[in-house]
Design a protein around this nucleic acid. Structure first.
Length: 963
RNA sequence: GCCAAAGUGGCGGAAUUGGUAGACGCGCUGGAUUCAAAAUCCAGUUCUUUAGGGAGUGUGGGUUCGAUUCCCACCUUUGGUACCA
């Protein structure tokens, strides 16, 4: 009987689905294990063979863990809010929910065909209201909390209010302190309700603030930095301007230190940790105040007696090397201090920089530009005047947007000083700075620096900070690069905020009235007056009496246009409890920042997950997904998890113990070469143009199906080819797999032809899980013939009956089995799935040669293989006479000892290296082993007549010979 | 520029703590089977050679009886990041 993979796989997939075989229980005596994949965004293109790589790996691990007696949670769902569905809706008018639903159906079909052991009863979609209900709820939690630096955690805002009523904010320590005035309890009590609300808004974990965004008027939306190329939008090439908008922000910066520290506790790939560490960008230094020396004009013009500004520096020890100051051109202070003589030049420079996009500024690092403001600052120690410049190499968004320039110690300051002919005082002992700045801080001592002269870096650093703090000039400061995350999007297809505005102030809608459903709109574009798409909704007001979203009442028609300004004041009695809802939606990362907790209890309608479920599952044990999410999803999720942990909503401060980044599977594009003059298709030369050709038109020997090619597109109908040996061989190149490159391979076709088991084995066999590697369909024949050999090994006859014997196994076969068990289990533990596939192939080849047909060998082998190739192994298992109710799960295989009879002999294999292999129960003395080792021919050869000093014997390890 | 990872046959890649380099698979060559093909099976496949050997894991050094593995320097490639004061 032949191996019909399609029949077998469909049969078992149906049985698994009907029996809900992989449904995980929230109550079990077994230890728990939670294996999670990064859930996909369901795109219209469907899956290609690159997508399931990580899912296959996690599925193997999940199935393996079930064999090992764990209660395994292995769920799957969809990150179903997102831009492509919205873009498609704009083009076609098709509701995003509809296209998303259709795409999900396709994904599900494709995923099912590969035979994953997902618990689909826990499936979730971030765009479903019963899911985003809790995304909205978490938002209200963030709104109702502030960060308390004293306890170093997020704390309910009610505790802040109690403190304000008692003592004002004198003793409050929170990250927003710099922008918040100090008030007393009396001040607080004298505040109007509105003033109190405004005051609290500054403290909240999520807050409204004016943020500069890249606004593209043509597209009617805000663009991320990477969506802008050369100052215009990547899509369509429309102009992009910097615009200030009121937006929600998330105070992730409050967690900077904890996000950094806790990286130590999680088993994540070092590159991801490095990327996050860089992104958080901690630097230690000092905040130093500089007074602006008043000019006569500024004295007269303003009542401000003393102007000053602060700079952040990591090198306070070089303070006596300061010869100028540089401010970011965007700072408000610039216009205040600029002298009349310099006004024209400064304004021209500010204008010029405003025109350049941030990206432009960054790509053009070499050009030095700036302008002198005419103003001077006073050196805090020497009291010397220091000229103040502006320059676009100083970024407004980092530190205070101002730097103290030390040209002898910083290359950028050095270049700027040379360009503007500013003097470069040298404060480093015996260092030549005639060519470039000296940036090495360890190797010399400070000189020409008053009380710091003669001190090495570390000592000078401490001394100067001590002195600054004593004199009130500055203080020690740890600065982070990590900025708060903007949380508003001017888009339709995302979670609506549970927020309405009353007297211009945001109000949260109570948890019991959630979810706030995404409203229907006729048009998914922004409104004609530039408001977000939700501005098109007719029904988008909140009634505080009925606690329902209500129609735009007649009376509010005039008012609607003012919604965004939030100045709605109503006198009418009916309208006094009807308020406009927030028009922005949440960004893509909102729903994905907590979904791993929802899987623990996905159908709970009272809570985002029950306490029992959270306590049982705790956190993700193994998380598999791409490394491209390092500074996005993976950082935001850690942030929300810590926030929820602070509020005691989740039991763990990190959501995933171990993370693995699978590599990308690349496509092998095929090219034909068209001669630029004759237009004939020929071999590649410098007079030909390469054209992508669909890989399905090419066979495994790179030969093009010319007839099919001609039919594939109109313009190719009359294509002429110059053939060699009657063939046209295409060119190949490895690229990212994508529709536009015509190199996409569909897993459905592979499953049809070779089966899901072959696909699974082959994807693992391609190479190390974490590496990127090209897909080559030709190679799949290897794993496919392995499956056929396996089938043959079990002696399946034409009636579908297996022929195996119950006789005792040969020693050889036992050795093969145990070797395989040992290696494969090691491989799984190290996530070297590629080598385990090799080891299975070796085992089947060896057993075939040994003509092994013993039950004692063949049954355990199946169990071992089943995580990799679940369908064929289940089928063979049933042919061996086991009912499915016994199931692979209950077979105690990974303990090999019960299959081994205790050996009386000690067959030590020594090949220069010595290990006590699995199937041996060794009982040798150290002296015995030494004798064997030293008698070994090759060791003797290596020793070459010398006597070793000692032989180190460690059981299970290599024997080291020390000469 | 900075940070990280990686360089092994025609190709993907093995070689867990230093111990027979190239497992396993693809491809290729030869053979068996077949009217023929597919499929299957068997043998061979790092290079070089005067057939005894010699060389060989990016390059050059070092440690060691012994190095793909450890150390130093350099070269190349791929990711990430970028005026962060």
């Amino acid at each position: 009987m032949k191996y019909f993979h399609n029949e077998i796989e469909k049969k078992w997939q149906k049985i698994w689905a009907d029996n809900q075989t992989f449904k995980a229980s929230n109550t079990s005596d077994k230890p728990k294990y939670y294996v999670l994949d990064m859930f996909p965004y369901p795109s219209g293109a469907g899956l290609h063979v690159g997508h399931p790589l990580g899912y296959i790996a996690s599925d193997i691990y999940a199935r393996y863990k079930r064999h090992k007696g764990f209660n395994v949670l292995h769920p799957q769902g969809y990150d179903s809010f997102g831009l492509p569905a919205e873009q498609y809706a704009i083009q076609t008018g098709q509701h995003p929910a509809k296209t998303t639903e259709a795409n999900i159906a396709t994904y599900r079909k494709q995923l099912d065909r590969i035979g994953f052991s997902f618990d689909w009863s826990r499936e979730l979609h971030t765009s479903n209201a019963d899911y985003y209900k809790y995304t909205q709820w978490i938002f209200t939690l963030l709104f109702d909390a502030y960060y308390c630096n004293i306890d170093d955690k997020a704390t309910p805002i009610s505790e802040l209010i109690t403190e304000l009523e008692k003592n004002g904010n004198e003793k409050v320590d929170s990250p927003c302190d710099e922008d918040t005035p100090k008030i007393t309890a009396t001040d607080w009590k004298n505040y109007s309700n509105k003033e109190q609300q405004e005051f609290l808004l500054k403290y909240r974990m999520t807050y409204l603030s004016e943020t500069t965004v890249n606004w593209c008027a043509e597209l009617g939306t805000v663009l991320a930095n990477d969506e802008i190329v050369n100052g215009v939008s990547e899509r369509g090439g429309h102009p992009v301007i910097q615009k200030k908008m009121m937006q929600w922000s998330m105070r992730i910066s409050a967690y900077a230190q904890r996000l950094l520290d806790d990286l130590q506790d999680i088993d994540w790939p070092q590159p991801i940790k490095d990327i996050q560490t860089n992104w958080i960008g901690r630097s230690e230094g000092a905040m130093v105040s500089f007074n602006v020396i008043p000019t006569e004009q500024s004295d007269k013009e303003s009542q401000v007696s003393k102007r000053f500004f602060e700079v952040f520096t990591t090198r306070p020890d070089t303070i006596f090397g300061v010869s100028f100051m540089t401010l970011a051109p965007e700072l408000e202070l610039v216009s205040q201090i600029t002298t009349p003589e310099q006004k024209q030049e400064v304004e021209a420079y500010i204008k010029a920089t405003a025109k350049r996009s941030e990206r432009d500024r960054m790509s053009d690092v070499k050009t030095i530009s700036g302008a002198f403001t005419g103003a001077y600052a006073e050196h805090p120690f020497s009291k010397e005047p220091i000229p103040i410049y502006i320059g676009d190499y100083v970024l407004a968004g980092y530190g205070t947007g101002a730097v103290m320039a030390v040209p002898c110690g910083d290359q950028r300051d050095y270049d700027f000083a040379k360009h503007f002919n500013i003097n470069i005082p040298n404060i480093f002992k015996d260092v030549d700075i005639s060519e470039s700045a000296f940036e090495d801080k360890g190797s010399t001592k400070i000189t020409n620096s008053d009380f710091l002269t003669g001190l090495p870096y570390k000592k000078a650093f401490k001394t100067v900070i001590y002195e600054m703090e004593k004199q009130g000039i500055g203080y020690k400061k740890i600065n982070f690069r990590l900025r708060d995350a903007v949380f508003s999007r001017q888009r339709y297809w995302g979670e609506p905020f549970p927020v309405y505005y009353k007297n211009g102030l945001p109000q949260m809608i109570d948890k019991k009235h959630l979810p706030i459903h995404l409203p229907e709109v006729e048009n998914y574009l922004p409104t004609s007056d530039g408001k977000p798409p939700l501005g098109n909704a007719t029904k988008w007001f909140w009634n505080t009496k009925t606690n329902k979203v209500v129609d735009n009442p007649e009376i509010l028609h005039d008012v609607q246009n003012d919604k965004a300004d939030n100045n709605v004041t109503l006198s009418d009695s009916e309208a006094s409890h009807i308020f406009p809802l927030e028009l922005n939606t949440m960004p893509g990362w909102a729903g994905s920042s907590w979904y791993f907790n929802r899987y623990m209890d996905p159908h709970n309608t009272e809570d985002f997950a029950s306490k029992e479920a959270l306590d049982y599952w705790q956190d993700v044990d193994l998380y598999i997904g791409g490394s491209e999410h390092a500074t996005g999803h993976l950082l935001y999720s850690r942030f929300w998890q810590k926030f929820l942990y602070d509020l005691k909503c989740v039991p763990k401060k990190e959501f995933a113990k171990k993370l693995i980044n699978q590599g990308m599977i690349l496509g092998e594009s095929a090219f034909v070469y068209r001669h630029t003059e004759t237009k004939k298709y020929t071999i590649k030369s410098d007079k030909t143009q390469a054209i992508h050709v669909d890989v399905s038109l090419v066979n495994t020997s790179n030969e093009l199906d010319i007839e099919a090619f001609k039919k594939s597109r109109k313009e190719y109908n009359n294509a002429e080819f110059i053939l060699e040996d009657g063939k046209y061989i295409v060119g190949r190149e490895v690229e990212k797999m994508s529709k536009s490159k015509y190199n996409v391979v569909n897993p459905d076709l592979i499953c049809e032809e070779y089966g899901a088991d072959a696909l699974r084995l082959f994807e693992m066999f391609l190479g190390p899980l974490t590496q990127s590697k090209p897909w080559k369909t030709a190679g799949i024949s290897g794993v496919y013939s392995f499956l056929k050999k396996l089938w043959k090994l079990y002696g399946i006859d034409d009636n579908g009956v297996a022929h195996i014997s119950d006789e005792a196994s040969s020693k050889e076969s036992l050795k093969t089995l145990h070797k395989t068990i040992k290696k494969v289990e090691d491989d799984i533990t190290n996530f070297s799935f590629n080598t385990s596939v090799s080891n299975f192939m070796i085992a089947v080849n060896e057993l075939g040669q040994q003509k092994c047909n013993n039950r004692a060998i063949l049954e355990p082998l199946l169990v071992l293989l089943s995580p990799y190739a679940p369908h064929i192994t289940e089928e063979l298992w049933s042919k061996l006479g086991h009912s499915t109710s016994i199931s692979l799960v209950d077979y105690p295989v990974f303990d090999a000892s019960h299959l081994v009879e205790s050996n009386k002999t000690y067959p030590i294999s020594f090949n220069g290296k010595m290990r006590f292999t699995l199937d041996l129960s060794l009982d040798l003395s150290k002296e015995d082993i030494e004798k064997i080792v030293l008698a070994d021919e090759r060791t003797q050869k290596h020793l070459d007549g010398r006597t070793p000093k000692k032989v180190i014997v460690v059981p299970g390890k290599i024997v080291n010979i020390v000469g």
